[in-house]
Design a protein around this nucleic acid. Structure first.
Lengths: 230, 230
DNA sequence: ATCGTAGGCTTACTGTGTAAGCTTGTCAAG
DNA sequence: CTTGACAAGCTTACACAGTAAGCCTACGAT
């Protein structure tokens, strides 16, 4: 079957050539796969299948699987809302961290990825630069900036990880809590059972409130700033 | 080669039978493997090799690989220091969370495991019960207990994860920071470069301070308690 | 008309978790 | 002493994983 370049076959190839598969399309596919079926569902073979290509073809646009992971992590970082340096630092950071939390809740796999050992990409770097800038502009010295940033980021990733990796769905928290309260030995875990009962009877769902810890931290930082200004 | 039960062969088998491999030994081996070479180095085959047995033999004592992971996670939880309910709640929790942080730094793989989707084991449950108990005894209402606990745990796991997954060794932070400060485009990342320079010149290492955020949270909680008592 | 190149495919190798079934020493009951 | 159930371990096999190496073919510039 030698060269063949007329008619249908040609068109098919032309069409295939027209969108010759780029890095962005691969990463988009990987993100939606992870969103739908979890990060562990993202394999090179399935990813290739998703974009209509054999697994090995991906390696023309991507160097590694780690490269894919770093890529989708940085795409998610790109969804973060860069904090404004015009408005009050506290409001600005609060809004930004709240938005980041919501982004990470939309992509539950991303928190562990961003906190993993991968090198930060350009989007993450830009975000870091902005947060550090806001803190510095607010009047914190460099060491406190580092500390504050560490504390805020810890809360963001720690809380989100906790929220996304509960061993049950949040919507069915009351039922799970009720079952838990029944299953635990009462004399051994009175406090846990009390908590579980509260959750079971609450009608507004699981008491996961990102802002609680966030405001605790921001309050503390504001007070620290005020006492230093003295 | 029919039944043979005298002499050396018999002793060898007896010796092998004397320590017929139990769940605890397997988990201990898994923990030290993870400590030495990382969690991804813990495979069933290597684990079997470590305890002198074929991989499939492990399944007589362990139901799954997930069972192994849950097991080692709960062993680490067993190293946590249960907070005392006798002393001041703030001191008690501070000491306890500090100790937990140190435990997790000794077992860098454990943070992500404890925060994963696995069901909590008995040791973790006991720890949770104690922390919740201390908070409740301190005078927080149940909802605030849940919130406070969530914030403290977020800090613990978020911070530890951050500290254990830096893309470089903490001891060589100054060099890495210096290299980073040089590599980043100066006009684009002035603040990050300032931070990196500070780290590069600091002689007391990387400014990772678990207590900074922890005290921020505890201060906030204490104030909340005081204002409620009014 | 030729040829380098880029996008894609095929094949193959090693390493993973684990299902299924086999072998063999131990120990209690007859 | 025999027998047979049982538990610990081993062997084999399978369906996945990531990815190295090399081939095939249409496109674009010369």
């Amino acid at each position: 079957m030698p060269t063949r370049r007329a008619g249908i076959a040609r068109d098919a190839f032309t069409a295939r050539r027209r969108a010759p598969l780029n890095r962005g399309a691969i990463l988009e596919a990987a993100i939606s796969m992870a969103d739908e079926d979890g990060l562990e569902a993202v394999t090179m073979r399935r990813l290739g299948q998703r974009v209509g290509v054999e697994a090995m073809s991906l390696y023309k646009h991507v160097s590694d699987k780690d490269d894919v992971l770093a890529g989708i992590a940085d795409r998610v970082a790109g969804e973060f809302v860069i904090p404004s340096r015009e408005t009050d630092w506290r409001d600005s950071l609060r809004a930004s961290y709240l938005a980041a939390h919501q982004v990470l809740m939309r992509h539950p796999w991303a928190a562990s990825l961003l906190e993993s050992t991968l090198q930060p990409g350009p989007a993450r770097l830009a975000y870091l630069e902005a947060v550090v800038g806001v803190l510095h502009d607010a009047g914190f010295n460099l060491l406190d900036v580092a500390h504050a940033f560490g504390a805020l980021d810890s809360h963001l990733y720690g809380f989100t990880l906790q929220a996304t990796s509960l061993p049950f769905d949040v919507s069915e928290a009351p039922e799970t809590a009720a079952a838990l309260a029944e299953a635990l030995p009462p004399e051994q875990f009175p406090n846990l059972i009390a908590m579980a009962s509260m959750v079971a009877e609450a009608d507004d769902g699981y008491p996961l409130d990102f802002t609680f810890g966030l405001d605790l931290l921001l309050d503390g930082l504001a007070r620290r700033l005020a006492s230093q200004a003295t």
